[in-house]
Structures are given as C-alpha cells and as structure tokens.
Design a protein around this nucleic acid. Structure first.
Lengths: 339, 339
DNA sequence: CTGAAAGCGCTTACAG
DNA sequence: CTGAAAGCGCTTACAG
C-alpha cells in the first residue's frame, strides 16, 4: 500500500526466521512447526505480504495461467462456458487468459507454452490448423490441452463436449412424436464437427424411424448464424414440396429461419414446426418460444477446467475417459406442434 | 520443441555476443549496430528462442497482462466488448485476463497489482464496493484503471461509455415523431448508473417535448433481464390506463416484455410500440424486429484498451478527456409504429 | 524442523 | 556500440 510492496525478506525479518521458512510456511505448511507457522502468518498479516507471482513462476517454471482459445470472443455463445471455466479457476490460484483464433492464425500456439504465458489450454475451436495441433501434440505440453465443445477428430487430445448426436436424435424423435413425417434439416458450417455429428444424428434417427430421407429437405446453412437461417428460409420458400418440420443446427439458425419465413407470411408452428439446438438465453422468450436442445455449457466449462487443474497438479487419473460427453435434453416450447 | 526451450544464453553463444546484446537487439534494436542485430536475429531464428515472460516480467516489475473485470462472465452482453479489448492487446504484447466480480467480492482487487498479476484493469462493473475502489485510487496503481460501459460517479477514474442519456432521448423523440403522446418506461436495476442515465434521458426528452409525465407509466424493472421485462408486462396488463409506447432500459427487457404481452393477446406494434436499448445481435431477428438504441460495444472495448496501453507505455496525454462518450443511434425496426 | 546458498532467465545501470 | 555483473523475488535441494 505504502510505496513498495513487502517481499519475503521483510516477512522473514519480522518473523525472525529465514526466507526459506517463510516460503515453506506459506506454500507447504506441513513442513514447518505449528509455532513457526503461526509466527510467520502473523508477520504476513502485519506486513501485508503477497507473493510476487512473476518471481514464484520463474522459479517454479510455471505461469499460473490457462488460456481459453475461442473461435470468436464476440460470439455470445461462449460466455457461459467461460463462466464455467472461471468458476473453477477462481477457487484455485489460476488466472484465466482469453484470446481468439483470429488473433493467432499466423502465430504459434506453442509460443504460449514456450514463453511461459500459459500452463495449459482449453481449445474451443475445432478449426485450428493441423500443423499447429501437431506441434502441440509432439511437444512436452501435449498433456496440458483439452478441447471443449468442438474438437478435431484426427487428434486424440481429450475433449469435453455435448452429446450432439443424441441431441439431434431427440429433435427428430420429438417431431416424429408430434406426427411429422416430412422432416428437413438446416445444417451449420461445412466441415464443422458439430455440424457433422448433428447431421449424423438426424439421419440415424430418421433411418431408425423408417422415414424417407429427402435430400431436398436438407439445407446447407453454411454457418450457425441468424443470417444462415434467413438464407435457408429463402431456399425453403422456393421448394415446390416442403417439409412440415425443420430441425436446425443451432438456435440462431432457427431464429433467422423463423424470422424470414414469418416476414413472408408463414406461421410457426401452424405452417411449419422448427427445432433449434443450444438453448441460448433468448430461446425461451423468442416469439414463438423455441423448442430446442439444451446444452449445459457451464458444465462443459467446469469439466474442461477441472481436467486441466488435475493435469497440472499431476493428479492424473489415466483411466479417465478421454472424451467426456455431457448430456443434452429437448426443451419443448411453442415452435413445434402437430402438422 | 526438443526437450528444453532455448534461453538467452544459448542465443548469445550462437551469435557470439553477450546476453546483454541479445536482450538489446530484441527489445531495443536501435541500441545495437545493424550488423550485430542481424547476427542476433539469425541466432534467434536458428535456436527458436522466445523470451521467458516470467523472467522478463520479474526483472521489469510488470506482468504484461490486463484484467477485464465483468459483473458476470456468463452475460453475453459483454462478449463484444471483450472482443474489442482483445483486438487491441493482441497487436501489442499484452495478455487479457478475465474474471467476474462474483469471484472477488471478498478478495481485494488491489491484490492483482500487488502480486504482479496485472498491469492494469478495465472495470466493467459499476457496483464494485466503495472501499475497494478507494484502496485502488489511493494506491500507486490508480492511474492504470479505467471504467468501461458502467462507472461509479463518486470516483474520478477515467471512463469509456455510451451516450446513455442521448440514447434515451432519441428513443423518446422517435416515439414522439410517430405520434405517441402517452409514453412509458421500464427501467433496469435500481442504483445502476446506466438505469439512472437512461431514465434521466427519458424524463428530459419528455419535458422538452412538453409531454406530461405519468409516473404510473414508469415501471421499475429491477434488472436488465428477460425476466424483468416479463414481470413488467404483468404490471402493464393491470394498468387501467395504458401508455401507447414503452421505452425499455435494455433489449432483453423489451423482448421479455413483448414476449409476455404477446402471450396475453396484445400485439406489437399494433397495440403498443416498444423500443429497446443495446441492439444485441438478436434484436434484428426478433419477431417483431426490435427498434432499439445501438451501442458500439466493440468501440468501447477498443477505447478502454487503448487508454490502458498508452498509460502503461507512459504515453500519457494529460489533456485526454477523462470521460469518453461513444455515440449511439436509434435503429428503427418493426416494434414501433404510429399509435 | 530450519537455514545458507544457489539459481530460475531475464534487463539494465555502469564502465569502457 | 558492447560486455561483465548485479539483481528482480522467489523456491528448493542440500546439509545439519
């Protein structure tokens, strides 16, 4: 507070012990006697001492920070995941660093480890270039990395994700249960793992239910965005034969779709039922409120962060599942009804 | 890559110079001769050297990190601001640390400076306790703090914010222009600075336009959330005399409100016009699409980050306005019409 | 259980 | 323009 901050030397002097003892009392209390510990703690309180992280980290060769790497920091979808991550780190002593992949395309992710900026990484982007991931994997930091939400199939980094396949199945079964037999799908970004899993789920469920798969009812949205949904709505309007229900790759797609077909005079769910995917905050208040697949995003963040925590503390349970799938569930609202 | 990372020693050996020269060539190129610089840079490339941040930071007494402190990491509203902040830091060498005020209530914000975890802070929460802010202000780090979006009036930390007052004025003038004379307002969280500024704008505009202010038309929403809007809708439905238009404290309030009155049979904008505030991503695709006040959130993030950058680099321009107001503008959509 | 001493990997006066 | 040397503030073998 007053000018310069106290150092471990100052505490040692006040407590009448060596700096080594102060250090031990603070970070490894069992190593010192009860009496010494009390004395040191008193001195710490008296001086207002706080360990200098840069010094500690240099000495211990660590950074006390984890990087969360998002595809796009501006995308609100990730805020709850970040919140989940942070809730774990805040109780430990780790700092949460964030960045997005736009900023580091050229750069090298490995640099974060090399120059000691991060002790671990949570990758929320499945589109990280192969060569960068290879470098990470073959480095000595390969075990401090985990994918969350998205992932890259060719790499066997551990991963926490929603049951995307199962979610899509639930969506189709819900529509089928309502009586729909002509069901379409609007998919997300091409080559995205989530897109593929959800599409796979849609197709598997339809096959199971012995529904004919009409390829014309499958629209390539190309993105998870509102715009993609609106664009898909235009394709939809031009169909000569139309499905009575649509399962969308995301809530934003669903909302963009509903918005655009409403503008063109169709009504949801009267003319067509629509299911989203994600259950973003607004889904329940959209008009009509959106039937969708709820992902537990906070939980994904918590699990990913906890894994890293264990990994860094070397409390590694090798038996732990490499892939953790978090359950999803369908929330039935007003955007779906009998045909 | 191969086992241990190279240190400045290794580079010095390869280049045939001292570590001091390597350090200078890297961080202060003007201090060495062209020839030396080239030699050093070659050696850096050859060895794959990256400076160790912990060591550099310990020596320079800095952390190379800025903390962004949000009220709630899970709130999607902040993602664009974070994106703006990050876009500035990514070009410099700073890391972006995030946390939310839930995690540090007890803790002391000053600790981030004391233990060298952050060189500066962007506070996005106007509800940080007075005593914590006082500590910060009277510390030697007081000049490395800036408020963004929200702020605390009693403290004269610099601040970047939207023109909340002007936005509210625009909302009222828009409704007036459409012919509305009975205008209401749903406010946000009590004691929140944004709530107060926007309310002040609403009242000032109505006074200017010589509209009678009917206190019964002013609903205390208590939060910026969807729930607050839905709750307000219930109060609205019970009014014997109702306004023909409502200016809301946020888009979420507006959407919650519209959602709830729709459920009860009223139509927007036929029965009532509604204006939001924020222009969140979904506003344009909401049904009806929402007339609202657009805040440039990315810009707020960029300005706050730039200020801190200058401050840390000591490129301080004392003449710089302490309060930077970012302009807002009304986006007219379908939720408003003539009464 | 405790202390003296080395060293983590840098940067920067200081001297030339 | 360059180098030798000190030192940033810790932690941890090592020795007792």
């Amino acid at each position: 507070m007053n000018g310069k901050s106290p150092k471990i030397q100052d505490v040692a002097k006040v407590a009448g012990v060596s700096t080594a003892t102060v250090s031990r009392a603070l970070s490894n209390p069992d190593l010192v006697s009860d009496k010494t510990r009390t004395t040191v703690l008193d001195a710490v309180a008296k001086t207002g001492y706080r360990v200098n992280r840069a010094a500690k980290n240099l000495r211990k060769r660590q950074s006390d920070a984890i990087l969360a790497l998002l595809p796009d920091l501006g995308n609100p979808f990730f805020s709850q995941i970040l919140s989940g991550i942070e809730s774990v780190f805040t109780t430990s002593d780790l700092s949460l660093l964030v960045s997005d992949t736009k900023g580091i395309r050229e750069d090298n992710l490995l640099d974060y480890f090399m120059d000691m900026r991060a002790d671990g990484m949570i990758l929320l982007d499945g589109a990280i270039p192969r060569n960068i991931l290879s470098q990470l994997q073959s480095s000595s930091f390969g075990n401090r990395i985990i994918f969350a939400c998205e992932w890259k199939p060719e790499f066997d980094f551990p991963s926490v994700r929603s049951d995307n396949f199962g979610g899509a199945v639930q969506a189709i079964e819900h529509l089928y249960g309502l009586g729909h037999r002509k069901i379409g799908h609007i998919s997300g970004p091409r080559n995205n793992v989530l897109t593929k899993e959800r599409l796979r789920g849609v197709e598997a469920a339809m096959a199971d239910l012995e529904l004919p798969i009409n390829r014309e009812f499958f629209i390539d949205g190309g993105a998870f965005s509102l715009d993609a949904g609106a664009q898909a709505a235009r394709s939809f309007m031009e169909m000569s034969d139309r499905p009575t229900a649509i399962a969308c790759g995301s809530d934003l797609i669903a909302m963009g779709f509903i918005s655009e077909i409403s503008r063109r005079g169709l009504k949801v769910p009267d003319d067509i039922s629509v299911v989203g995917f994600d259950d973003i905050e607004i889904a329940g208040s959209y008009i009509p409120s959106l039937t969708t697949i709820r992902q537990n995003r906070t939980q994904i963040g918590v699990l990913a962060a906890s894994y890293l925590l264990d990994q860094i503390a070397n409390r590694v349970t090798d038996n732990a599942a490499q892939v953790q799938e978090v359950g999803v569930k369908l929330i039935a609202r007003q955007s779906t009804a009998a045909p």
